[in-house]
Design a protein around this nucleic acid. Structure first.
Lengths: 169, 169
DNA sequence: AAGATTTATTTTAAGCTTAAAACAATTGGA
DNA sequence: TCCAATTGTTTTAAGCTTAAAATAAATCTT
């Protein structure tokens, strides 16, 4: 009779055996590689073609969807970046004439940020080209593959959010 | 007879009609959201649990796989970051005793960077926990879904690389 | 209404990141 | 050999990013 018997039933976690999670790690690294690769290329092209940074483009993209403007807090939630980050970003885009800020009438702490006419026009030019780049970068996937990937990423997002909100699997 | 007749055959691109690429854009934004979400959480936990930044963790991860060390150039290729970026990162980790550098005997321009004994031990502690976090974050996907996602991301990476190397679809 | 809490934003300090220029050592020819 | 091109690294300038502290206005409680 063996002294170091290990339960055959994997569900029996009495010994808290270190499980092998290398597959999930590989999956994460691949997801990160894809994201980094594409983001880097988009960043490079935005700089090259329009002399604009990706964070500025992203900020303008959010505002383009909100004709009446948004507050900094709304923006920071949408963009998943810190409030302090936006302060500087908005400041630079106001200086360059792409954005305008006005104090909210309902809440004197808050500012409403909006695209200027120029800012909106410039953004739309960039956005059209940007959209074509993305289509090109994902062009090697069939429509079905794109749909499948879309679905799996939705599930991944949901899975991560649940794990982040502190639950049991 | 209509003046603004549009060719019924979508393949006939004589007019270069602006195509609709919103689906690819949505796919890209979802990929980016997943990546940002998970990366942010990993960053937060690394700081909270080990007081370490993600770039430092990533650098140590590369070096852990190379017992004999790597040059800065090798590292920058692997990590997809600039050389100048690594200079500072390595400098800080050498200061903290996690890394050591020695001049290559074959090429006096190059330095070989390695984990110190301490650095390696600390990294492995962190890596084990990190792996469990990732498994948790991806835990909502079945094994099949993980395999499918893996395959689709491989294809995405391939697609992006091809688009970046300047080819026709 | 006063005081406590929350919410919106800015500031600060530190670190990450890049592109471009500079520098240094190596390699490949003529 | 000498010189040009390449390769490995650092420096510089600018901008991005965050967490934490500070400030200010609104809201809630009693």
């Amino acid at each position: 009779m063996s002294d170091q018997a290990i339960p055959l039933d994997a569900e029996t976690k009495a010994f808290e055996l270190p499980e092998d999670h290398r597959d999930e790690l590989r999956l994460w690294l691949r997801l990160l590689t894809c994201s980094t690769l594409i983001e880097g290329e988009v960043r490079r092209r935005l700089r090259e073609r329009f002399d604009v940074t990706l964070p500025r483009f992203d900020l303008m993209a959010q505002l383009d969807k909100a004709p009446d403007g948004m507050t900094l807090s709304d923006l920071s939630k949408r963009m998943m970046v810190s409030n302090g980050n936006l302060t500087g970003l908005v400041e630079r885009l106001v200086s360059s004439g792409h954005l305008e800020r006005r104090v909210s009438e309902l809440d004197r702490r808050a500012q409403i940020i909006r695209l200027t006419t120029t800012g909106r026009a410039e953004f739309r030019t960039m956005a059209a080209e940007h959209e074509a780049w993305i289509a090109d970068l994902f062009g090697g996937l069939t429509e079905k593959e794109q749909r499948d990937l879309m679905r799996l990423l939705a599930k991944t997002k949901f899975s991560a959010r649940r794990a982040m909100s502190g639950e049991a699997a």
